Amino acid sequence: MSQEEHGQELAQVASRYAKRNQAHSEDRYSLLRPEVWQMLQERQRAMLRLLALRPGQPADWRLTEVGCGAGGNLLEMLRLGLRPEHLTGIELLPERLNLARPLLPAALQLHLGDASVAPVPAASQDFVLQSTVFSSLLNDGVQQAVAAAMWRWLKPGGAVLWYDFIVDNPRNPDVRGVPLRRVRELFPDARLRSQRLTLAPPLARWVCNKIHPAAYSLFNSLPLLRSHVLCLIEKP
């Protein structure tokens, strides 16, 4: 795809995020909501189990996050023991990066703009993290460009940590599911391990608010009701 088409798609991503923020209050994503903290804690447990099996120690790992938003995932990595100077965040939207900067140590690098051209050295990262970024990239060429950059940044033996939708949301045309076959297309040389997580958010909100927060685990025990996957995408 041309640079112009690439730039147009990124502008549309920013527009879709702005529209989404207008449509939904921040309260919808508050950690005080029972469905939100249960989804978050489920993902955290699964990711920690994966990381516990990786070689080395957190203090030595280098990690870049694509689409770091307001910095929540980077804060998790700091709590895990990664050093600020070994962490990098990349964010397309300036208003979100402005929220992240005061929360994060000065030694942690933050870059604004297109991840596919971010100044991350090749073969320098132990991990590259993306969480619900690719489902917002509706253009296959942009997905491919960002995935190629992520793969280039990884050291041999490094891994992409991937968490995203696998199914379309018929009520939200601004996102699309990224099934496992597409993940394999984006990273054809990788060894891929995946697990299905997260009760579909519309259902999770209904269950926790109309039945009881404890019912989240009951419904989530049915794999077909889970809408996301967590993948470890390893570079040989």
Rank of each mutant, 00 (worst) to 15 (best):
R45V: 14
L232I: 05
I166N: 02
V133M: 03
A145S: 13
L93Y: 08
R182H: 09
R62F: 07
E5N: 09
K19Q: 14
L92T: 11
V13P: 00
H212E: 07
R182S: 06
P170V: 01
R101M: 12
L53Q: 13
W151H: 11
A122N: 07
L103R: 15
A147H: 04
V36P: 02
T64W: 02
G158C: 03
D189C: 03
L103I: 08
V183T: 09
R226F: 04
D164I: 01
C231F: 01
Q130L: 09
S2Q: 09
L192K: 01
N172H: 07
Q143T: 13
I233E: 01
P55M: 01
Y17I: 15
H24M: 06
D60L: 04
T88D: 05
L92Q: 14
G67E: 06
A147Y: 10
A115W: 02
C68A: 12
L161R: 00
P188S: 13
L199C: 08
W61K: 10
E234I: 00
L50P: 00
G72R: 00
Y29D: 15
A147F: 03
R96E: 15
Q195H: 12
G141M: 05
L203F: 04
H86I: 05
Y17C: 09
A122F: 06
L154V: 09
S124G: 06
D189T: 09
